[in-house]
C-alpha cells in the first residue's frame, strides 16, 4: 500500500543511508540536516521543516520524512500524518508545470469539467497524476478568484481564462 516508490528521494536515500556506501551521495541531505537544525527545539518545527524540505527535494519522499523524523526526534508516522493532512505537501514528485483547473461553482457551470477531461486525454494522466516526462501535473482546485474569466485554469503562475476544451492542445504547446 506504499504510496510512493521510485522518487528522487528514494534514489538519494540508497546513497546516503549507508547500505550502499560508495555510491553517489545526494548533497541535499546535508542541506536538509541544516534546515532541521535551524528549527529543532522550536515549537511547531515540523511544518516549516517540511515546507523547506519540499522546496529542496520537490516532494516529501519516505527518506526525506524519515530524516526529518529522526532529526526532530518524532516518529515517522507523525511526520506522515502531517504531510498527508495538508494538501500543500506532496509525497510524489510534481511535474515542472502544475496545471490547476478551477472547479469552483462559476467555472463548473461554464464547463470546467470538460476542460479537465480534455486535459486528462491530452496528457494521458488522471487528476493528481504527473506525466511520464515529468513535465505536467494535473490538479483541480477551488475558486481562484477570477470567476469573471470562468472557466479558469492556471499553468504555473500563468492564468488562462475562458478556456474551451478544444484549445487545450494549443495552450499546452507553449509549455512543452
Amino acid at each position: 500500500m506504499a504510496v510512493m516508490s521510485a522518487t528522487i528521494g528514494t534514489a538519494a536515500c540508497k546513497c546516503s543511508c549507508g547500505s550502499n556506501a560508495g555510491k553517489l551521495v545526494d548533497d541535499r541531505f546535508p542541506k536538509l540536516d541544516a534546515i532541521i537544525a535551524k528549527y529543532k527545539g522550536k515549537p511547531g518545527a515540523l511544518i516549516p521543516v517540511l515546507h523547506e524540505a519540499q522546496q529542496l527535494f520537490g516532494c516529501l519522499s519516505e527518506d526525506v520524512q524519515d530524516r526529518v523524523a529522526s532529526g526532530l526526534g518524532i516518529s515517522p508516522s507523525e511526520v506522515y500524518g502531517v504531510s498527508t493532512f495538508y494538501s500543500f505537501f506532496t509525497l510524489r514528485p510534481r511535474g515542472k508545470w502544475k496545471i490547476g483547473v478551477c472547479l469552483g461553482t462559476a467555472c463548473y457551470v461554464r464547463g470546467a469539467a470538460e476542460v479537465v477531461e480534455a486535459l486528462k486525454k491530452e496528457l494521458d494522466i488522471p487528476v493528481n497524476g504527473t506525466t511520464k516526462d515529468g513535465r505536467f501535473t494535473l490538479e483541480v482546485v477551488r475558486c481562484l478568484g477570477a470567476c469573471g474569466l470562468a472557466p479558469v485554469m492556471m499553468i504555473g503562475d500563468d492564468v488562462h481564462g475562458r478556456v474551451r476544451p478544444e484549445q487545450i492542445p494549443e495552450i499546452l504547446k507553449e509549455y512543452r
Partner: peptide, 10 residues
Amino acid sequence: GVGALSFAYR
C-alpha cells in the same frame, strides 16, 4: 513512546 501509529490524511 513508540509512535508506530498516527492519524494520516483528513
